[in-house]
Amino acid sequence: MTRCNQEIYLANVQVQLGYAGSQITMDLSIHITDKRTRETVDQLVKYLDI
Rank of each mutant, 00 (worst) to 15 (best):
M1S: 10
M1V: 07
M1D: 10
M1Q: 13
M1P: 07
M1G: 08
T2K: 12
R3P: 03
R3G: 08
R3W: 10
C4P: 00
C4A: 11
N5G: 10
Q6R: 14
Q6V: 13
Q6D: 07
Q6T: 12
I8Q: 08
I8N: 04
Y9Q: 07
Y9D: 04
Y9P: 04
L10D: 08
L10S: 03
L10F: 10
A11D: 07
A11Q: 09
N12L: 00
N12H: 05
N12Q: 09
V13F: 03
V13P: 01
Q14K: 15
Q14H: 02
Q14I: 10
V15M: 02
V15Q: 11
Q16I: 05
Q16K: 12
Q16A: 08
Q16L: 08
Q16D: 15
Q16W: 04
Q16H: 06
L17W: 11
L17N: 13
L17Q: 13
G18M: 04
G18S: 08
G18W: 00
G18R: 02
Y19R: 03
Y19V: 01
Y19H: 14
Y19L: 09
Y19N: 01
Y19S: 01
Y19P: 02
A20R: 14
A20H: 04
A20P: 01
G21W: 03
G21Q: 07
G21H: 09
S22F: 03
S22Y: 00
S22H: 00
S22M: 09
Q23K: 14
Q23E: 06
Q23D: 08
I24S: 01
I24H: 04
I24V: 15
I24Y: 02
T25A: 00
T25K: 00
T25F: 03
D27C: 05
D27M: 07
L28A: 03
L28F: 04
S29V: 11
S29Y: 11
S29P: 01
S29M: 14
S29T: 12
I30Q: 12
I30V: 07
I30H: 07
I30N: 12
I30F: 02
H31L: 13
H31P: 00
H31R: 14
I32D: 08
T33Y: 08
T33K: 10
T33G: 00
T33V: 06
T33S: 06
T33H: 11
D34C: 04
D34V: 01
D34F: 04
K35F: 02
K35H: 11
K35R: 15
K35I: 04
K35L: 11
R36S: 03
R36D: 05
R36K: 12
T37C: 06
R38M: 05
R38H: 07
R38V: 09
T40D: 14
T40R: 09
V41F: 06
V41M: 07
D42Q: 15
D42I: 04
D42N: 12
D42A: 15
Q43D: 13
Q43G: 01
Q43L: 11
Q43A: 15
L44P: 02
L44N: 09
V45M: 15
V45S: 06
K46W: 00
K46H: 03
K46M: 06
Y47E: 15
L48G: 10
L48R: 14
L48I: 05
D49F: 12
